[in-house]
């Protein structure tokens, strides 16, 4: 009798301790984000914004490639169209900031819907090719259409007074990230997530279980496009100027690799990998300049190509040794934080 009570209390004590550790871990992670915001000034506020925007883009790719199993090598087109739409609405039409972002999301959705309709007919590797070609075409055609994007000079995307400061803007970006993370979580926990898993694995099985394969595929494209467009809108006002150069096709390839490195279907992994690649080009030059020994062939161009260089190295390591990406590496931690149950 007393032995049982003892065991029970010990179990309870252990769960209490576990809970404390878990909460501490989550708080520490949040603090890690908050720290640069509070003490880093405008420079770090800008960086946090950029990291959050990249994370949103990564999650957008995750919806499409991770959940629905549809590869997109032209994602920069969705993001770019969102960015230019938002800039267009803000600077040419003088629409309020919120409308610009909504317009960006809408433009991304519509673009993705069109590509999604193609994806109903064109599958697998061919879809990868089509999206790559689409991205290239969007880059050279739509983004160079002077009336819409301002041509080579780019379009201005002023912020509204409310998020004028870099700190406020960073908070806005983080808020969007939180909302997107929440929807991704609900997606996988409800019917849509299960249906998409079935569609990804076997469309015929999915359809005999009552899943509208066409609808879910288009839905995944739309949602991914919506999130990508929104990220584009945020990106436009982050930089306050949008240029076609920002959305070269290499960027899309980099993003896909970034999502794979983070680990498809792993929210935490994708956020970490995305933030890393968002910050790398900003932090790397300072870091290298601060080194006591300067590598010989350092120049502006190197800063430009080091991130792709690194992401590819990481990709190869990931594909060979842990195909689940950073998410797989972190799995023990996340399982602990969520509690022991799987």
């Amino acid at each position: 009798m007393s032995a049982t009570t003892l065991v029970l209390t010990r179990v309870r004590v252990r769960t209490h301790l576990g809970l404390v550790v878990r909460v501490a871990l989550i708080l520490a992670a949040l603090a890690l984000v908050a720290l640069p915001l509070v003490f880093g000034g405008d420079v770090w506020a800008q960086r946090v914004s950029r990291a959050a925007i990249y994370a949103v883009i990564g999650l957008s790719i995750n919806t499409l490639t991770g959940h629905a199993g549809q590869i997109s090598l032209g994602h920069q087109a969705f993001v770019g169209i969102g960015a230019f739409s938002s800039a267009f609405m803000a600077s040419r039409l003088g629409a309020p900031f919120g409308f610009g972002l909504a317009g960006a999301a809408l433009a991304g959705t519509v673009t993705a819907l069109i590509v999604g309709m193609v994806a109903l007919r064109v599958k697998g590797l061919y879809l990868a090719l089509v999206t790559l070609a689409f991205g290239l075409t969007a880059e050279t055609t739509i983004f160079n259409w002077r009336e819409f994007t301002g041509g080579g000079a780019g379009a201005f995307a002023p912020r509204s007074a409310l998020v004028e400061s870099d700190l406020a803007y960073a908070l806005l970006c983080l808020a969007v990230l939180v909302v997107v993370l929440y929807t991704d979580w609900r997606l996988v926990s409800t019917k849509a997530g299960r249906a998409l898993t079935a569609v990804r694995n076997d469309e015929r099985i999915a359809s005999t279980l009552g899943v509208d394969v066409t609808g879910y595929k288009l839905g995944a494209f739309c949602f991914s496009g919506l999130v990508a467009g929104l990220a584009g809108g945020l990106f436009a006002h982050w930089n306050q100027v949008v240029q076609a150069l920002d959305f070269e096709f290499q960027v899309a390839l980099l993003w896909v690799l970034m999502a794979v490195v983070g680990g498809l279907r792993s929210r935490l992994g994708i956020v970490i990998a995305s933030s890393f690649f968002a910050l790398l080009p900003l932090v790397l030059p300072n870091f290298l300049a601060g080194l006591p020994w300067q590598p010989p062939f350092l120049n502006e161009a190197v800063y430009h190509v080091l991130p792709p260089f690194l992401v590819v190295l990481m990709l190869l390591v990931v594909l060979r040794f842990f195909p689940g990406g950073i998410g797989q590496l972190l799995a023990p931690v996340t399982r602990f934080v969520k509690g022991a149950k799987r």
Binding site: Y182, T183, L187, T190, A195, T197, A198, G210
Partner: peptide, 18 residues
């Protein structure tokens, strides 16, 4: 639960928005 798809009684978007 996947097989229960058609009798979930809520729309995919509602699930997404939680």
């Amino acid at each position: 639960m996947l097989a229960q798809h058609q009798r979930t009684g809520y729309s995919a978007v509602a699930g997404l928005l939680g």
